[in-house]
């Protein structure tokens, strides 16, 4: 397996047109097989950072490198690297509604592989396996509107897995889920990590942090990197968490 960094973010500043910057001079590196959490309050720029990692937006200054290549719009839209990138990096959006845009669950799972150009037989095999893995076989022909929040999340994750990614970007994966669904999801993520997937999770939930990551990058409300380090150290740094608006009082 290559030891080259999966993601290399250097000095990235990004702002939506007409708005103040969401990210200021952010640096980040993610090694293969790592579990990294991006920690920050609402509005600190976590989701935007994940968007940049997935090549959905492009920074005004600084660079985002993935698998050694600088991410650019033209590169992703036209080159073979772009196709491989889309397959290798899966992004679980916070809003499952936007992720489930196909008429049935089975077609949702088929969307990615079909766009890649895989043969129909292979696509059907992958669909069956993904349905079994996430225990959603009984939802195969359901329209997305008829699913509960936990089921939607599982279908969304399954639709990423059919692309057989090597990296997963997760935006607040447990937000709004009931405890059982949360547990299922966390177990699944642990299993995927054990098989070699790199995970980058954006969250502001401190309780789940130890289960989601080994290393943490904290984004302050000033949209800059406030701190970086192992989970234990960050969680013990009360004043830092208070400054970043992640706790109510420094314990």
């Amino acid at each position: 397996m290559s030891t080259e960094a999966v993601f290399q973010v250097s000095g990235v500043t990004f702002a939506y047109p007409g708005f103040p910057p969401c990210l200021c001079a952010v640096d980040l590196e993610v090694a293969p097989g790592e579990r990294v959490a991006v920690l920050g309050a609402n509005g600190s720029g976590k989701s935007t950072l994940l968007h940049l990692l997935d090549g959905l937006h492009f920074a005004q200054s600084g660079r985002v490198r993935a698998f050694g290549q600088v991410l650019e719009e033209r590169l992703l839209e036209t080159s073979p690297f772009g196709s491989r990138f889309r397959a290798q990096v899966g992004y679980l959006f916070q809003n499952s509604e936007a992720m489930l845009f196909c008429p049935t669950v089975a077609e949702e799972l088929a969307f990615g592989p079909l766009q890649l150009g895989l043969p129909a037989a292979e696509v059907r095999t992958r669909i069956a396996d993904a349905l079994a893995l996430l225990e959603i076989g009984h939802l195969q022909d359901r329209p997305p509107a008829a699913l509960s929040a936990g089921e939607k999340k599982r279908v969304a994750l399954a639709s990423l897995l059919t692309l057989s990614p090597s990296v997963l970007l997760l935006d607040e994966p447990t937000a709004g889920l009931d405890p059982r669904s949360q547990g299922l999801l966390l177990d699944l993520l642990a299993g995927l990590h054990a098989s070699g997937l790199t995970l980058v999770t954006a969250t502001h939930d401190l309780d789940l942090l130890p289960e989601l990551a080994e290393r943490v990058v904290v984004l302050g409300e000033d949209h800059r990197v406030a701190a970086e380090g192992p989970v234990k150290d960050i969680l013990a740094d009360g004043p830092l968490l208070l400054r970043a608006n992640l706790v109510r009082s420094a314990r």
Binding site: L56, R86, A87, Y91, N95, A98, Q115, S159
Partner: peptide
């Protein structure tokens, strides 16, 4: 959001 989700899963217009 739907556009981004489709792009993220490999949509290229076809």
């Amino acid at each position: 959001s739907v556009c981004l989700a489709m792009l993220s899963r490999g949509y290229r217009g076809e």
